[in-house]
Amino acid sequence: MSEVLDNLLYSEEHEWAQQAAGQVVRIGITDHAQHLLGDIVFVEFPDVGSSITAGDSVGSIESVKTVSELYSPVSGKVTRINDALEASPELINDQPYGEGWIFEVEIEGEFAAIAGLLDAAAYRELLSE
């Protein structure tokens, strides 16, 4: 079974969100998603400084099997991308919740109030369906 961390929020599209500092939220794909994709070879990032809306496609992830859209689970302004993935996209496979994070977004409002995201228990239930 895929690893699901209790301290993260999850989207139905298999992205995770974690409060990094203040209004900044770190985004990545879940362990489940990286298993489905297989060996990841390239990441197309959203542009730093761009405004994004929750649920919108903001980039893509290419694996040896397929190319998958990357959706943002939150709305806000992209403040940072994980440059390490340009040289080592396999970090997503190795550490999807650690060094394999993809980008950060500055949100308005409280992280805990982000609508539409699942807590760990609800995400585990989604995976079991």
Results as ranks from 00 to 15, higher is better:
60 S>I: 03
123 Y>T: 01
72 S>G: 04
93 N>S: 04
113 A>W: 10
7 N>D: 15
38 G>N: 06
43 V>D: 11
47 D>Q: 15
11 S>G: 15
77 K>F: 09
99 E>F: 06
22 G>P: 04
75 S>V: 07
42 F>Q: 02
5 L>M: 13
84 A>W: 00
96 P>V: 05
48 V>S: 05
56 D>V: 05
16 W>Y: 13
15 E>K: 08
37 L>D: 03
106 E>P: 02
84 A>S: 15
36 L>D: 13
128 S>V: 02
86 E>D: 13
74 V>I: 11
39 D>M: 00
64 V>H: 06
75 S>T: 14
128 S>H: 10
110 E>R: 04
120 A>T: 09
105 V>G: 09
18 Q>D: 11
7 N>Y: 11
45 F>D: 07
123 Y>F: 11
114 I>T: 13
74 V>C: 12
76 G>M: 00
65 K>L: 06
52 I>K: 07
17 A>W: 05
64 V>M: 10
37 L>N: 02
30 T>K: 09
18 Q>I: 08
71 Y>K: 09
15 E>F: 06
128 S>F: 01
129 E>M: 13
25 V>W: 07
97 Y>R: 05
47 D>N: 14
118 L>D: 09
41 V>D: 07
119 D>I: 00
101 W>A: 01
108 E>T: 14
87 A>Y: 02
122 A>S: 15
66 T>V: 14
8 L>I: 04
39 D>K: 10
64 V>E: 11
42 F>C: 11
66 T>F: 04
128 S>R: 12
6 D>I: 00
113 A>T: 14
22 G>C: 02
56 D>G: 01
104 E>Q: 15
27 I>L: 13
14 H>G: 11
104 E>K: 10
46 P>A: 07
34 Q>G: 09
32 H>F: 15
52 I>V: 15
100 G>F: 09
100 G>P: 00
122 A>M: 13
100 G>A: 07
43 V>K: 00
85 L>N: 05
28 G>T: 02
16 W>E: 00
71 Y>T: 12
49 G>K: 03
65 K>A: 01
108 E>W: 06
129 E>P: 04
38 G>V: 10
52 I>F: 02
94 D>V: 02
102 I>L: 13
8 L>F: 14
119 D>A: 08
13 E>N: 15
124 R>N: 07
42 F>A: 02
30 T>F: 01
25 V>K: 08
94 D>G: 11
